[in-house]
């Protein structure tokens, strides 16, 4: 039996994953403000895409498998998208109903 040659695609994907891992870790020490979460999630999305395409071999899979994952992804996008849209645009509930005196702020428990 011939000796086993390392699959190039797997090795390259693995190296790319570790480079992105280090980049994400390093960037977490840079103060990017509110963009830091988006940058970290963008890197995570690239890493996930690499794993799905080259380790899980979705790139070479038949259409039925791609559609299955696309359906899950679509449903997930609707769920998370609508939930964030709701939470981000929701009016805070009124603390005091109209006509009632303002509450003593010191007595409201912090949590």
């Amino acid at each position: 039996m011939s000796s086993f040659a390392l699959p190039k695609t797997v090795v390259r994907t693995g190296l790319a994953l570790f480079v992105l891992w280090a980049a994400s870790f390093g960037l977490s020490y840079v103060h990017l403000g509110s963009a830091s979460l988006l940058v970290a999630l963008a890197i995570a999305a690239v890493k996930a895409a690499l794993v799905v395409m080259f380790f899980m071999e979705l790139l070479h899979e038949s259409l039925s498998m791609k559609l299955t994952l696309a359906a899950a992804g679509g449903l997930l996008a609707i769920l998370i998208g609508l939930m964030i849209a709701d939470a981000a645009t929701r009016e805070p509930p009124p603390l005091v109903p109209p006509g009632y005196p303002a509450p003593d702020v010191a007595k409201i428990p912090s949590r």
Partner: peptide, 16 residues
């Protein structure tokens, strides 16, 4: 897939 899920858990709970 278990790896992919952790790839997203990591930035949310440890980095950003």
């Amino acid at each position: 897939l278990v790896d992919v899920i952790w790839i997203f858990l990591w930035p949310l709970f440890y980095l950003a």
